[in-house]
Design a protein around this nucleic acid. Sequence first.
DNA 1: AAACAATAGATGTACATACACATAAAATAA
DNA 2: TTATTTTATGTGTATGTACATCTATTGTTT
Lengths: 152, 152
Amino acid sequence: MKLENALLTNKFSSESQKATLNILYTAWWLKRTASKELKDFDLTHEQYNVLRILKGKYPEQLCVKDIGRRMIEKSSNVPRIIDRLEIKKLVKRTVSESDKRETLISITKSGLSILESSTSKLNKLHSSIQTITQKEAEQLNHLLEKLRATEI
Amino acid sequence: MKLENALLTNKFSSESQKATLNILYTAWWLKRTASKELKDFDLTHEQYNVLRILKGKYPEQLCVKDIGRRMIEKSSNVPRIIDRLEIKKLVKRTVSESDKRETLISITKSGLSILESSTSKLNKLHSSIQTITQKEAEQLNHLLEKLRATEI
DNA sequence: AAACAATAGATGTACATACACATAAAATAA
DNA sequence: TTATTTTATGTGTATGTACATCTATTGTTT
């Protein structure tokens, strides 16, 4: 769908301002589409993201800070997301021996299992709505990184 | 900054999966950058968005539903955002005469004024970090719309 | 007209974000 | 060693999202 129809306007001050809104709208759309699938697993997009990060290092543990550094949204409140995952027994907290300030997080068997099935479902969705070629994806990645050139 | 460095990983299952994460991360970055500027005006990104929508139709009024249809994030809880804008006297609520279920929202002089100065500040920021050409922006818009091809 | 369904908006709740601040532990300076 | 600073995490609060439900009003059916 064209952005004009999604936002019911065609008052864009420039092509690049339109691109800004287009990125924000597409991100919302992507998140919402994925979240619908994750609902079957009683996971939010953010909880899934934390599990994915933990699996990436499994069986290594990660401290809260290291998880935060890998989050898509850097201002996520990681301890609170961990709280909810811990209640569902998908992760476990341990105080670090070497530095007692640190809390080490490990993904449980149950967490790995739910991550596997939800990832499989997301992948299926992804391939079914896959509409751009690899070359186009490369181009997109390049443009987004160019846009963020002034990133601190 | 490359996505690999932003997320401290290079485990992407495909170029298009990387593009998905890249869009999410870029959206977060854009929102955060704008929000920092808006803080001086005691406005959130979403409140700014509502004011922008109202100004687009000014001096016409818009009902809550029509505002929602124009929001970037369609699942925004518009009445609640209006609540906060109303407290700050940036918008006004009126019950519609023709349909008493509808609440008509109008932007106040004060709202217009704060919108003008915040927009000016955002535009300055935008042009200072503007790193892509018009042609690249067009390409980006095209790719994002292609990606959303299966949008419902 | 009366009964029923649909619609607009408000509100409740769980979760997340953004940011300030508190606390405990570790690192460093005096 | 003691005092000070820094760091890692947790917590409080305001705002927003996502979704369900309630209420008032309008539209439709019988």
